[in-house]
Amino acid sequence: MRKRRELLRMIVCLFWMTGILHFPLKANEVIPETQSEVIVREHPQTGDPYIVIKAQGDEGREDLHFGQPQKYSRPDYEMLRSSVKPGDVAYDGPVSSRKKIYILAASLATLGTVSGVAGAALFPAAAGTTASGSGAGLAAGVAVTGAATAAASIALNQEIPDDYVREQESRLLEMQTDFYQRYVAPHQISPVESNRSQ
């Protein structure tokens, strides 16, 4: 009789595990309808998939849709070494071009609007390259232009360290605390301290 019961129990368990006989288990807590759905998106540049939870029927966050993928190579930080010359390390990422500055300055110079100190102050980089400003303007242009500054510094100081520096630190600001730690412990005075204060 006992063997039969055990056998029956095993068969029921087996059927339940395989999904043939599936009865719902009583849940501890009823989970309400969350109105959400799971989709998979691809990283805009690497193409690696990741899971997104978004509201049902919604397009999701527009600011997190990155549009057309841009296939850049991964950056090589060797480029930041001072001994590495421009072009030594391959780079196909975005570049800040200052050509438009020159174009603007040139167009203004053609119009005859760039002249003297005022022009150089407004367009220092352009003033240094187009040579349309006065002497004061040219000096100002060299002083504030990034590339010119860097080039000048090589001649001035040969002791520039070759390596680039990475610094990183994290600091805990707040940790989970219970009621006792937050409200009681800070106000408790230890017997030693209370004796000293007396």
Binding site: P86, Y91, P94, V95, L173
Partner: peptide, 29 residues
């Protein structure tokens, strides 16, 4: 809240503006 922490990440390099993509890579770093 389980924890809250702040992080600082920094990159320092020389002759950044003299190289094509220098400021961009420094920011990335």
């Amino acid at each position: 809240l389980y924890a809250r922490f702040e992080t600082r990440g920094a990159s320092e390099a020389w002759k950044v503006f003299a190289k094509k993509g220098g400021p961009e890579v420094n920011l990335n770093h």
